[in-house]
Design a protein around this nucleic acid. Structure first.
Length: 175
DNA sequence: GCCAACGTTGGC
DNA sequence: GCCAACGTTGGC
């Protein structure tokens, strides 16, 4: 079993969108980078992924998702209207792949990038490297466990926040 | 909104 | 096959 980190801009598709999706599952389409695609292709059913919000305030690890379907052709690549359209792709030559992911948990205590940088055990993470832009990256089991533990820690002051309760469903996925 | 870092493209 | 130009990403 392997562990990953998948990055998304919450204005495009957030973990709340995933929570609101049918079966809390979505296809992870739109990856248009060969290295990231190859990581998608290496994913196995049951693998777990840290769900990370980039370009957010603050950028943060916000939960965990599980791979529920292994890589298959990403049809948005040949949909002309899609923002992920790629003229070189076709059903005969899909080029790009996607997987299906299902929500496992939303962190009660999201971990901002600042905080991630402050954890020595996470110093080697790809996402924290300068100029890192890969939207799909492997993480080690130890890194995954460290992040999940931080994400689920008790929040301390005040009533225990249940982040799930705060997020009303925005309705259909905005994709 | 800036801009450094990076991947991709295309002229040669 | 080099590399400058360009577009995109994403933290700040």
């Amino acid at each position: 079993m392997n562990y990953w980190l998948i990055k998304t801009e919450p204005t495009s598709f957030s973990i709340e969108d995933l929570a609101a999706a049918p079966k809390q599952t979505t296809f992870w389409e739109g990856v248009r980078n060969y290295q990231a695609r190859n990581f998608l292709r290496a994913m196995k059913v049951g693998d777990l992924a840290v769900f990370y919000h980039s370009n957010a305030e603050p950028p943060a690890a916000v939960g965990v998702a599980k791979i529920v379907r292994e890589a298959y052709a990403d049809p948005t690549a040949w949909e002309k209207k899609s923002k992920y359209f790629d003229a070189k792709a076709s059903p005969a030559n899909p080029i790009w792949s996607m997987v299906d992911v299902k929500l496992v948990e939303i962190f009660t205590s999201p971990i901002s990038i600042d905080e991630l940088r402050g954890v020595p055990a996470l110093a080697g993470m790809e996402i924290l490297k300068r100029g890192s832009r890969l939207s799909v990256t492997p993480v080690t089991a130890a890194e995954f466990r460290t992040i999940e533990k931080l994400g689920l820690r008790a929040t301390g002051a005040g009533p225990v926040a249940d982040s799930r309760a705060k997020h009303r469903s925005p309705g259909r996925s905005r994709r």
